[in-house]
Design a protein around this nucleic acid. Structure first.
Length: 467
RNA sequence: GGAGAGGUGGCGGAGCGGCUGAACGCGCCGGUCUCGAAAACCGGUUGACCUCACGGUCACGGGGGUUCGAAUCCCCCCCUCUCCGCCA
């Protein structure tokens, strides 16, 4: 949610912000509704103030007369009734006015609120302007010793790579057929060492963020109410991507939704709270199962472990003071953590500065980390994939967009007694099984077996090679 | 799933149609006293919205209703607790 006051003061900024993000929203309509809304509110408040004043002044008298009326003899009643009616006349009329204006206010609000929910956070000035992910800008590359990203896999390693799909098949790590039998397309079953590798890499990442970087471990709900989805900014925009459990049709009070990321649970923790400034920043990490419908992605990445409906993810969030410098510093730190992690796994990657068209509604800035996946990309002359980078991480900076919706505020020395919306950031620590794609493909050997990255061996009971 | 109790400020807890945005206690902040501290005493201490300001409006779990007037009465929803049943 953006600040309505800020929009009022500088509508051009939001108009342009939405245009750059390729998001359509009628700013002029919002301004129009806001103006009408405030005018009605002012009128209503004035009428109510008047009514309150009169009620306070004449109320006790009405009470007294009403008491008298009960005991009064027949003959005196009409006189008392007339007095009461006279005293009630003005406030009664005002009450009617208030209620009339209230109805007009109520008529405006749904449209105003719905529109306001759709106004995107303008991207920062240093975010590259672009249409889609094709316009994202590469910031840096990293390669492990002995890997030259200018060369092909075969030139680097001396043999042609298999895709992760071929590897999991021959090594018996994933059973797609049975997954699909039970749960439909994009479903899978991790088997044996496949499951073990999945768990090992998640556990490694979780320990990494907690032990090395001091994030607080949390377990959070993955089945949440609509207000948690709205508060974190996933609704209304991402409704189509979310599994919806219609509990309300079965007698329960509210529907529930399966979260597509642990960010929802972590950010929802402190909704409607006022946090003491001294306890900021909050640094939380969770590992949770994530559910995504992947609506509209039909035909894209249909095979393999890349794009699936259910996966597990270690996620980090930071909730900090409302300070651009601090927010930027955390963004860098969170990226640094992930770079360190991916480097320790020995996977080549690059960082991409996402362009305005790729940011989505809630982000002011976003940097993706993409790992090199030898089994992806265009086909060569032999109809073999030439390799490509594939997104494995995404670090977002949101200013107060999310905290405003969540009503997550703080108070302390620097705020001068005021309550202020916090800033929030989030970043993938590691998502699996997607990360198994680069791990399996990069660690494969000429003999078809796959080495287990050294840092994961301890989490796999010492297994060094799969196959 | 069945039966009952209850949701008031940072916490405890009163209020059950107008004098209550809220008694009282605790906590917290400031002051007096003190070499300093404790104690005692005095003062302060919710949030949102509109307004340049004066000031005004709203909020006692959430929403709606009755009334000139609702924390207080009525309806719906949500949540918490206790007992029983089921259960990883």
């Amino acid at each position: 949610m953006i600040d309505l006051k800020a929009l009022r003061d500088d509508p051009a900024r939001f108009r342009e912000g939405a245009a750059r993000k390729k998001i359509e929203v009628d700013i002029d309509r919002i301004l129009e509704l806001d103006q009408a809304h405030r005018k009605l509110m002012t009128g209503q408040e004035r009428a109510r103030a008047e009514q309150n004043k009169i009620s306070k002044a004449s109320g006790p008298e009405i009470g007294k007369l009403t008491g008298q009326l009960k005991k009064a003899p027949e003959g005196e009643r009409s006189a008392i009734e007339a007095k009461i009616a006279a005293l009630k006349a003005k406030p009664s009329e005002l009450a009617k006015q208030v209620s009339e204006l209230g109805k007009q206010v109520d008529a405006l609000e749904p449209e105003l609120n719905a529109l306001l929910m759709c106004v995107p956070m303008p991207a920062d000035a240093d975010v590259p302007v672009g249409e889609s992910s094709d316009d994202n800008v590469e910031l840096s590359q990293w390669n492990p010793p002995g890997w030259d990203s200018a060369k092909t896999f075969e030139q680097n390693k001396g043999f042609a790579p298999k895709t992760h799909l071929e590897l999991v098949e021959t090594l018996g790590l994933v059973d797609f057929e049975r997954g699909v039998k039970m749960a439909g397309s994009r479903s899978y079953v991790l088997t044996g060492l496949g499951m073990r590798l999945h768990q090992a890499v998640l556990r490694y990442a979780y320990d990494f963020i907690i032990e090395k970087h001091g994030f607080t471990p949390m377990s959070v709900p993955v089945l949440v109410r609509e207000n948690a989805m709205e508060g974190t900014g996933f609704f209304p925009d991402g409704r189509d991507q979310t599994y919806h459990i219609e509990e309300s049709t079965r007698g329960a009070g509210q529907d529930l939704f399966l979260t597509g990321t642990g960010e929802v649970g972590l950010m929802g923790l402190h909704a409607n709270e006022i946090i003491d400034e001294a306890s900021l920043p909050l640094k939380y990490a969770t590992v949770s199962t994530c559910f995504r419908r992947e609506a509209g992605a039909a035909g894209r990445d249909t095979a393999g472990l890349y794009r699936i409906h259910q996966f597990d993810k270690v996620e980090q969030v930071v909730i900090c003071k409302a300070d651009e410098g601090e927010s930027r510093t955390w963004h860098k730190k969170m990226l640094g953590i992930v770079e360190e992690l991916v480097q320790s796994l020995g996977l080549p990657y690059r960082l991409l500065h996402c362009c305005t068209g790729d940011l989505g509604v809630k982000n002011a800035d976003m940097v993706d980390l993409e790992c090199w996946m030898p089994g992806r990309g265009e086909m060569d002359a032999n109809d073999r994939p030439m390799g490509a980078y594939g997104e494995t991480h995404s670090a977002s900076r949101l200013y107060d967009f999310q905290c405003r919706r969540l009503n997550l505020r703080y108070k302390g020395e620097s705020t001068g007694g005021k309550t202020v919306f916090c800033h929030s950031l989030n970043n993938t620590v590691l998502a699996s099984p997607r990360v198994l794609v680069p791990i399996l493909e990069m660690y494969q050997q000429a003999d078809g077996r796959v080495r287990v990255p050294r840092v994961l061996q301890g989490h796999m009971g010492g297994v060094e090679v799969i196959g």
